[in-house]
Amino acid sequence: MSINVALLKSICELPGAPGFEKKIRDFVLEQVSPLVDAVQVDNLGNVIAIKRGNRNPENKRVMVAAHMDEIGFIVTHIDDNGFLKFHSLGGFDPKTLTSQRVIVHGKKDLIGVMGSKPIHVMSTEEKNKLPKLTDYFIDLGMPKEEVEKYVTIGDPITRERELIEMGNCVNCKSIDNRVAVFILIETLKQLEDPAYDVYATFTVQEEVGLRGANVSAHLINPDFGIALDTTIAYDVPGASAHEKITELGKGTAIKIMDASTICDYRMVAFMKSTAEKFKIKWQPEILTAGGTDTAGVQRMGKQGSIAGAISIPTRHLHQVIEMASKEDIHASIHLLKACLETLDAYDWKH
């Protein structure tokens, strides 16, 4: 099963830390505008692309949310030697940052290195401690006078990692959640017969509190909601069976709950039956820690929505690189399309 890896590569490699999504937003607008009936950008920066339903006398709305932002950092200080201190935008695993390259997005993009105290000069106590974000600084290889020509306090920082293919997987920074942006764009390309009006929503600032989803759901006021996001695939050595959550290559995941949402039982049942009907490989997902845009989609409309989520199993989540299966990505596109085209055929009253 093939996917458009070149498009996914372009989406993943663009920068877009929370609150600084302009470059990825501009790319999304370019991609979706020819595919839909109307496009708008709200004051927070969410992109809402509307594709009208073909069988919709009651004007029902389904909101599909994929967040555009990626975990990143923001410059907080430039010291006398030109080294940068920073604050995180979203959750990072600090132990994965040692000596990693980042891009500081100032007046021009500058490559930096995440520096920390060398192991050779650490005390025994320091060697036995897990690193903290505050242990790191960013080295641009420039003196302060040169750094200040290009960098100011408040500039965003993103990871520097290109997309590569590994086996039947893709590996890159920002698979979370650019793979969902990709899935939503590819679904819009294939979506010919939506049952209800589809509000394909590319949200901002999910990684710092679901902010874009909350605002856009309040505006759209959806009857149905589907979030698209990555989830943990802890299918690696040392993982017990009950810890895995999902596994790569076992299909798209149908969310039952995460830390911020218990999905509507009707949406879960609908997604399961749709996957079975269309012979789409799937697996259940219960994520006990970590929230997604599902919460905003479900709760921020005037009457709430019948909401659930399609999740993409991902290894190494919230680290420097992340990995997903091309088969699972393909299955996610297939399931989303099938759901949007058959929403009106399901008995939502039971």
Rank of each mutant, 00 (worst) to 15 (best):
M1P: 00
V5N: 05
I11P: 03
E13L: 06
G19E: 10
F27E: 05
V36F: 04
G45F: 02
N54G: 15
R55M: 08
A65Q: 01
A66Q: 08
I78R: 01
D79F: 11
N81P: 04
F83V: 03
F86E: 02
S88N: 14
G90A: 08
D93E: 11
P94Y: 03
T98W: 12
S99Q: 15
Q100I: 11
G106P: 13
K107F: 14
S116Y: 09
I119D: 08
V121A: 01
S123K: 02
N128T: 00
L133C: 03
V147E: 09
Y150N: 15
T152F: 11
D155Y: 08
I164V: 14
G167A: 05
C172T: 14
K173V: 09
A180M: 12
V181P: 05
T187M: 01
A195R: 06
Y196T: 06
Y199P: 05
T203Q: 09
V208K: 02
V208H: 03
G212V: 06
H218T: 06
I232R: 05
D235Q: 00
V236S: 00
G238K: 02
I245A: 01
E247S: 12
L248T: 02
K255Y: 10
M257L: 15
A259T: 05
A259S: 14
C263Q: 08
M267E: 04
K272H: 11
E276W: 00
K279F: 06
P284H: 04
I286R: 12
I312L: 12
I312E: 01
P313V: 00
L317A: 02
E322P: 07
K326P: 11
E327T: 11
D328W: 10
H330C: 01
L336N: 04
D344S: 14
K349Q: 11
K349M: 03
